[in-house]
């Protein structure tokens, strides 16, 4: 068991070290993805992605935060996706 905790701690240190050196960053390929593309990719992983127009803008913000927590999504992805989902309401 100790071994697992140690692996976990070492893993955290590796993450820390990597991010100190480079910072959390996304590749240009990922950074250039549109909200629509990120929605199609991320929101389909666990369930069918809900379509734009399904909810009002406030509720997309609520759901976005819920999914960020429940599904460990990155904040940048969630923001781009909710902007895309809201665009159908405007």
């Amino acid at each position: 068991m100790k071994k697992i905790l140690i692996i976990f701690a070492v893993f955290s240190i590796v993450i820390l070290a990597t991010s100190l050196l480079t910072g959390c960053y996304v590749s240009a390929k990922v950074a250039n993805k549109s909200g629509a593309q990120l929605w199609g990719e991320n929101c389909n992983r666990c369930h069918n992605a809900p379509a734009p127009g399904e909810l009002n803008n406030d509720n997309w913000d609520i759901v976005g935060t819920h999914m960020q927590i429940r599904a460990n999504l990155t904040k940048t992805d969630v923001e781009k996706i909710t902007d895309f989902l809201k665009s159908a309401n405007n």
């Binding site: 993450i15 990597t18 996304v26």
Partner: peptide, 11 residues
């Protein structure tokens, strides 16, 4: 969630 390039690490 921590993005690193194309990869994401979720913890």
């Amino acid at each position: 969630a921590l993005p690193f390039g194309d990869i994401k690490i979720l913890y």
